Amino acid sequence: MRRKLRVAAYAVCVREGQLLLARSPGPDGTPEWVLPGGGMEHGEDPYDTVRREVAEETGYRVRVTGLLGVDSLRLIGTRPFGSRFGRRADRHAVRIVYAGEITGGELRYETDGSTDFAAWQDIDAVSGLVRVPLVDTALRLWRERPAAGHLDPTAAPQA
C-alpha cells in the first residue's frame, strides 16, 4: 500500500464576527468551503506557508498572531482518498492551524489554483455551509485555545 504524508498550514482569520473562507471543489465536484491555507513546499517553514497560501487564495496579507494547534487525519482507501488507478493508499494529513490577522491586500479570487472564490462568512452561519471538517476543527481550536494545541476527541465542543 502506498503511503503519502502531507503537511499543510491554515489560518483562522476572524474580524467583526466573520470568518475568512475559500471555496474549493469537493471530491465529487460539489463546492465546499475551506480555510485559506495549504500544503508546505519542500524546505518551507509552516509560518511562511500559511502567509503564502492566504495571499494566493484570498489576496490578503496576513500576520500570524498565534499557533492554535495541530490536527492529524489519516485516511486509508481508494479514490477519492487514495491514489490514481484504484490502488489503495494510506494518506496522512498533518494540519497546522494558526490564528491570523489581515494586514493588507484586497479580497480577490485565486486563478488556476485549488480554490476559485474567497469570502467572509458570518461565524454563526458557518455550521449551515457545505464545508470540510477542518473548518469546524479550526473554529473549535480558535474558541477553546487548548494549552496543548490538541482537541480532546471525546469532549463535546464548548458553546
Rank of each mutant, 00 (worst) to 15 (best):
M1G: 12
R3P: 07
K4T: 12
K4G: 01
K4L: 13
A9W: 04
A9M: 07
Y10D: 03
V12G: 04
G17F: 12
G17C: 10
L19P: 07
S24N: 03
P25I: 03
P27R: 13
T30H: 10
E32D: 04
V34E: 13
P36K: 13
G38L: 08
G39D: 08
G39N: 11
M40N: 12
M40S: 12
G43C: 11
E44C: 09
D45M: 06
D45R: 11
P46C: 07
Y47L: 07
V50L: 01
A55Q: 14
E56V: 06
E56M: 01
E57V: 03
G59R: 06
G59K: 03
Y60R: 04
V64H: 09
V64R: 06
G66N: 06
G69E: 13
D71V: 13
D71P: 05
S72V: 14
R74C: 08
L75G: 00
I76C: 05
T78A: 11
R79L: 07
F81P: 00
G82A: 10
G82D: 11
R88P: 03
A89W: 00
D90E: 09
R91P: 05
I96C: 04
V97T: 09
Y98M: 05
G100F: 10
G100E: 14
G100D: 03
I102W: 04
G104Y: 05
G105Q: 05
E106D: 13
E110K: 11
E110L: 11
D112K: 15
G113D: 05
G113E: 13
T115I: 03
W120S: 09
Q121W: 14
D122N: 06
I123D: 08
I123P: 00
V126R: 08
G128A: 15
L129W: 04
L129R: 07
L129N: 02
L129E: 14
V130M: 03
L134G: 02
V135C: 08
D136N: 13
D136V: 02
D136I: 01
T137E: 09
T137G: 06
A138N: 08
A138R: 10
L139A: 05
R140I: 05
L141C: 02
W142K: 00
R143W: 02
R143F: 00
R143L: 07
R145E: 13
R145H: 09
A147I: 09
A147P: 12
A148Q: 11
G149K: 12
G149H: 06
H150P: 00
H150V: 13
L151S: 11
D152H: 10
D152I: 01
D152Y: 07
P153Q: 06
P153N: 05
A155D: 10
P157T: 10
A159P: 11
